[in-house]
Simulated assay, not measured.
Amino acid sequence: MDTWRKSSYSGPGDGDSCVEIANSPTRISVRDSKDPTAGTVTFPPASFASFVEALNCAASSRAAPPGRSEARRPPTPG
Rank of each mutant, 00 (worst) to 15 (best):
M1A: 11
D2I: 15
D2R: 15
R5D: 00
R5L: 09
R5C: 06
K6D: 00
S7H: 07
S8Y: 03
Y9C: 14
S10A: 12
G11E: 03
P12T: 10
P12F: 10
P12Q: 09
D14I: 05
D16W: 09
S17I: 11
E20M: 08
I21C: 13
I21T: 14
A22D: 01
A22L: 04
P25S: 08
P25E: 02
P25N: 01
R27N: 07
R31A: 01
R31P: 13
S33Q: 06
S33M: 07
D35K: 12
P36M: 01
P36Q: 02
T37Y: 01
T37E: 09
T37K: 12
T40Y: 06
T40I: 15
T40K: 06
V41F: 10
T42K: 02
F43R: 05
P44V: 14
P44R: 06
S47R: 13
F48V: 04
F48T: 03
S50K: 13
F51T: 09
V52N: 03
E53F: 09
A54T: 15
A54M: 11
N56Y: 00
N56Q: 11
N56H: 12
N56W: 00
N56C: 04
C57I: 15
C57P: 10
S60N: 08
S60W: 03
R62Q: 11
R62K: 14
A64C: 14
P65L: 15
P66C: 05
P66T: 02
P66H: 02
P66M: 02
G67M: 10
R68I: 15
R68K: 09
S69H: 09
R72F: 04
P74V: 00
P75W: 01
T76C: 01
P77T: 07
P77F: 08
G78R: 10
